[in-house]
Amino acid sequence: MITVRRSEERGSGHFDWLNSRHTFSFGSYYDTRFMGFSALRVINDDEVVPGAGFPTHGHSDMEIISYVLEGEIAHRDSEGNIARLPAGEFQLMSAGRGITHSEFNASVTAPLKFLQIWIQPNVYGQTPGYQQKDFGENKGLTLVISPDGEAGSLTIKQDARLYQLLLEGKESVELPVASERRAYIHVIEGELHLGNHRLQPGDGVAIEDEKDVLTLMANNSAVKALVFDLP
């Protein structure tokens, strides 16, 4: 079964310093039809004005991923991590038994755009952790996050994998989805075709109970997307 979630159907949050679109229920946006998908709980498409950001706040037992699309994040947390996260880099913060952190736009002149993603862990009360890495611009599917750190990927506390997908022109890749697994795709740039479905930036698609190999194809444009392999 393939279920498309269109960009314009997402929830939203608007503040003086933040514009955000929510794929799943978050904050003041609540829809019982969209509470998450498998272990994937949050995909927020955030734009932060210059010099502003998320002040210090806490989390526990959540795997929190940030992927910077434009600008740079200034990160600080209670474990002593102080870092800059430029465009193209992935950050994975394992909240574990408890962590506080802040995420600010490092620039006072340019906006910050990034995806904030939450995945529920399969173990609880663990030591908090922080990881950060740029996985380059290789075409096709690049493994970014896995449960065992395979191929230099960031290590997540869940039986889940995250891939960066980059395509150009009419390039395509095959996406096998095992019958007992689920997949979710979030399009960032370009037009991506999945069978008869035409996906635009901000669109998402949930995939479950599919036995055939699926083909992801660019439509004469550069495509950037995230592909989640989920339990």
Rank of each mutant, 00 (worst) to 15 (best):
Thr127Gly: 02
Ile145Leu: 01
Met93Phe: 07
Pro55Ala: 03
Met62Ala: 05
Glu137Tyr: 11
Thr109Phe: 14
Gly58Ala: 12
Ala106Cys: 01
Ser146His: 08
Ala74Cys: 12
Glu47Cys: 09
Arg76Asp: 12
Glu72Ile: 03
Thr127Pro: 01
Ser60Lys: 14
Thr109Arg: 15
Leu143His: 01
Gly88Trp: 02
Ile117Lys: 03
Ala87Pro: 09
Tyr124Ala: 09
Gly80Cys: 13
Gly98Thr: 09
Glu63Asp: 09
Gly80Asp: 11
Ala87Thr: 14
Gly58Val: 03
Gly98Ala: 10
Gly98Trp: 09
Tyr130Trp: 10
Asp134Asn: 11
Ile73Met: 12
Ile99Lys: 07
Val68Asp: 08
Ile73Arg: 02
Ile99His: 02
Ala87Lys: 13
Glu72Tyr: 13
Pro111Gly: 13
Glu70Tyr: 12
His59Ser: 10
Ser66Gln: 01
Gln116Thr: 00
Pro128Lys: 03
Thr100Ile: 01
Val48Glu: 09
Val108Phe: 14
Glu137Lys: 14
His75Thr: 06
Val68Glu: 12
Asn105Ile: 06
Leu115Lys: 01
Ile65Ser: 10
Gln116Pro: 07
Phe114Lys: 00
Asn105Gln: 13
Tyr124Lys: 08
Lys133Ser: 04
Ala106Arg: 14
Gly53Asp: 04
Gly125Glu: 00
Gly96Tyr: 03
Lys133Val: 02
